[in-house]
Simulated assay, not measured.
Amino acid sequence: MSDQVELTNPVELSVGGMSGHVLRRAIHLGMSFIPFLYFEIGNEVADAISLTLEQIVSAVIIIAVFAEAVRLRIGWTIVGQRSYEAKQVSALAWGALGVGMVLLLAPDPAYAYPLILSLSLGDPLLGELRRNEVSTNTVILAGAVGIALIWASCAYFVDTPWFFVALMGPICVASEWPRLRYIDDNATMLLIPLAVILVVDPFLGIM
């Protein structure tokens, strides 16, 4: 069996059809609020329950992993998930892991905002362009430009190094492109750019 999966229509495979697909996209877009909540009220929540912010993130990851294991054991899918996710780790679980790793390893607004927004906004952009049968070259170009604009906005608002603006567009698009059976692009779109940041940051001194 190939490690690559065939590109399919996300609406046809979504539990709930178009409604499920729309819900899936809405969840993606809603992830945009995660860094805002983390940096604006995270410490207050942590203090209120006598935990550190890092402990809360770790707890969420552990809960997500446990819940996903139970879901896979049952073979259960909910509205918005793809039918094949009954037998493999879901995009939602991979996304939770990826976001959690970003917040644990790069807990600085300069990095967390653009990394998470590249997934929450960039992935739906690429997916919808592809679903509407836009040419591959156009998808790549539009995705790279769109994600570069996200990083440029973060450079302006949260002091993300401008160095990453031109770099991360192509990297994030390339991270989303492989259709792998064993890991979802919700993870690769976060973990691969995160790895780049962790390698480069010692020269920039942001964290």
Rank of each mutant, 00 (worst) to 15 (best):
V11G: 13
P202A: 14
E176L: 10
L103H: 06
I78G: 12
C154Q: 03
A46C: 12
A187G: 07
S135Y: 01
I61V: 14
V5F: 06
G42A: 10
V79N: 09
L125W: 01
G95Y: 05
I56F: 03
N137K: 01
E12S: 15
H28A: 09
V99H: 02
L141F: 04
S19P: 02
L126N: 10
W76A: 09
W151F: 08
G127M: 11
S14K: 07
V70C: 08
Q55T: 03
N43R: 13
D159A: 15
V60Y: 04
L204E: 03
I74H: 11
P193Q: 13
R71W: 03
G80K: 04
I61R: 03
G20C: 12
A166S: 10
F164Y: 13
G100K: 02
L167F: 12
G20L: 07
N186C: 09
F66D: 02
A46G: 04
N9I: 07
L72Q: 05
F164L: 10
M18R: 14
L29I: 15
V57N: 07
V200Q: 06
L126P: 02
E44C: 04
G146F: 05
E133H: 12
D123E: 02
W177R: 11
V45F: 01
I192L: 15
A174Y: 13
H21Y: 15
S135R: 11
M168F: 13
L97H: 02
L103P: 09
L51F: 13
M18Y: 15
L103F: 10
D201H: 08
L23R: 05
S19Y: 03
V145F: 00
L191R: 13
G30Y: 01
F39D: 07
W151I: 09
P35A: 15
P161C: 06
F39A: 14
D201F: 06
Y156A: 10
A110Q: 05
S83H: 02
L29K: 00
P193C: 08
M189I: 14
I140T: 05
F39L: 10
M168R: 09
N137A: 07
Y156T: 08
M207T: 13
G20Q: 12
D185V: 05
I74D: 02
T52Q: 00
A59N: 06
L141Q: 05
R82D: 08
G98M: 14
F164Q: 03
A112T: 08
Y182R: 13
I74P: 03
S19D: 15
I34H: 04
A46S: 11
I74C: 08
G143P: 09
W177F: 15
A86I: 00
S175P: 07
V11S: 14
E40R: 11
V65Y: 00
C154D: 02
E40M: 06
G95T: 08
Y84H: 13
L29Q: 11
V22Q: 04
W162F: 15
T138W: 12
G42I: 00
E6S: 10
F164H: 00
S2M: 01
G17E: 07
V22G: 02
D108M: 09
T77S: 15
V89P: 06
Q81M: 14
N186Y: 01
M101Y: 11
F33N: 00
A48Q: 07
V11P: 11
L119Q: 06
M189A: 08
V165E: 00
P35Y: 10
I192M: 14
Q88G: 01
S83Y: 01
S83K: 00
A96N: 09
G169M: 03
S90D: 11
Q4H: 13
F163H: 05
